[in-house]
């Protein structure tokens, strides 16, 4: 178990949980989002290699309507 901050909200995840697993949990498509992990952008090819640990900060963003 680990506690991380996802988009400003505290959530609990299982141990050995990757960014890829996180996307699966929230049913998010890789090609439609971008991820910032502890302040750095993670390239999409590394999503399955990046494992989350306690107190990590993850931001998942996507495109929305805007002018």
């Amino acid at each position: 178990m680990a506690k991380i901050q996802l988009n400003g909200k505290k959530i609990s995840i299982k141990s050995k949980f990757s960014i890829q697993d996180l996307l699966k949990k929230y049913k998010l498509e890789k090609k439609k989002i971008a991820i910032e992990y502890n302040g750095s952008i993670i390239p999409k090819i590394n999503y399955n290699k990046k494992y989350l640990k306690n107190n990590d900060k993850v931001e998942i963003v996507h495109f929305i309507g805007g002018g």
Binding site: K9, I33, H62, F63, G66
Partner: peptide, 13 residues
């Protein structure tokens, strides 16, 4: 078209 970048709403899948 212009688009904005914002957080995904994780509470409403």
């Amino acid at each position: 078209v212009t688009v904005a970048v914002r957080r995904v709403n994780i509470l409403d899948k």
